[in-house]
Design a protein around this nucleic acid. Structure first.
Lengths: 229, 229
DNA sequence: CGCACGCTTGATGCTGCTCAATTTGTGTGG
DNA sequence: CCACACAAATTGAGCAGCATCAAGCGTGCG
């Protein structure tokens, strides 16, 4: 592993408070690996070998049942995934694949559990991360059960606009089909919903979305801090 | 607190591994309280004062938005709720109310965070519990996104039948309207879905459901270990 | 006995999916 | 730089799944 990567990882919330010795133990056992886009990293139902951390690129968590597939979440740097499965040493509930070229840090599950046991700062970070992930899923579930697909899209636009610096312009980072899956709708529906939002001042072309009247959009979206975060 | 309650709580997975001194610190600061049915215990948006543990009875976690309400989960003994909010000291994402008369152990949030910091066994239990809660929500999200409401009902019947001892007879513990909300459908829809399942050997009257042909029901339900657990 | 509440049943409409046909966009090789 | 091939996105038609609204039914309790 390169010096720069080492520093980057050491600075992550998950590792920044722990002792140097334990950090070395974790990272000494780990692999930092690059993957091409659309590579499956893990399969739901398998037992966890490694804790994965997205260092660069983006990874889609998804799940399939009875011929259908749905995106659960999209992970960007620098978050862990399948932490809960590693902690409990139980099968993955989700599969993961890269959306873009990605760099993933893989720490053996056994090592994570060991270090957890005797580094209180690391334990605290793990709990914080896990609690954070928990809250993200709860928000998704609420969004799914309490909103229509058009409202989910409207709120996604508002939130992403904010994350990208409030320029009233949003740039998609991935396919519309992926966005559709992430928002829990079909690509056809995303198309129609985007067309619908034109009534509230949302104009889209290609991968650019322009917000012409953010107060109209907000009236439609009804954003809620307890869902959107 | 009575001796018998003390022992019961000491034996819970969350507390059974920790030191006696730290357990006393936690429980010394706690309240064990009884509540009548349909009492609101916490409101989404508030900051956590206490970690709650259901000792007896059942508690519904729910959430409201834009004039609609949805059940997120129903907690029975002996699980914690709002653990993630307590850990992160962030607002509740869900409200909670009793469904039946209930007995709740309330431990001050500050005390939980303190003891967590210097009792590794307790920290490990907290992480385990949190990871477990996380996986429950992921399963719910998958069920919501990948199944129809009739399939959710069919799987709920199979699972509950198993929990109640595989007698091919399920007894509802709460209103059908509550079950409907928990399964993400309206009461009207639950009625129709129960009528539909008659085709697969499910007969219901009042609070009793009889499974006459469990293999037919399973063919319809398509149970999946990665959703139903 | 009758009222109240929870449940059921029916009619209707919205939301979102499926299937199929275009249109648009993108990357590749001539 | 253009032409082609292929993938992504849009559009339309039709249908399944569920919600809503509005009666009716049943049961339990005052």
């Amino acid at each position: 592993m390169r010096q720069s990567d080492w520093k980057l990882i050491r600075a992550l919330p998950l590792f920044c408070d722990m002792s140097e010795a334990n950090f070395e133990k974790l990272v000494g056992a780990a692999f930092l690996q690059r993957f091409p886009p659309h590579t499956t990293l893990i399969n739901e139902g398998d037992l966890p070998d490694f804790l994965h951390i997205v260092v660069d690129g983006s990874v889609e968590m998804f799940s399939a049942h009875n011929g259908h597939e749905t995106t659960i979440d999209i992970m960007r740097p620098e978050t862990t995934f399948i932490l809960a499965a590693v902690i409990r040493d139980e099968v993955y509930l989700k599969s993961a694949r890269t959306l873009s070229p990605a760099q993933i840090l893989m720490i053996p599950a056994q090592t994570v559990r060991e270090v957890f046991g005797h580094d209180a700062a690391f334990a605290r970070s793990i709990v914080n991360e896990l609690a954070d992930r928990y809250r993200v899923v709860v928000r998704s579930l609420k969004s799914e059960k309490l909103r229509t697909s058009a409202e989910r899209l409207a709120n996604w636009i508002l939130k992403t606009n904010h994350q990208q610096g409030d320029h009233q312009r949003v740039e998609l980072m991935f396919d519309k089909r992926t966005l559709a899956s992430r928002l829990g709708m079909t690509p056809e529906n995303l198309s129609r919903n985007l067309a619908l939002l034109a009534k509230f001042g949302v104009k889209s072309s290609g991968r650019d979305i322009v917000i012409e009247d953010s107060s109209a959009l907000e009236r439609f979206a009804k954003p809620n801090a307890l869902i959107d975060g």
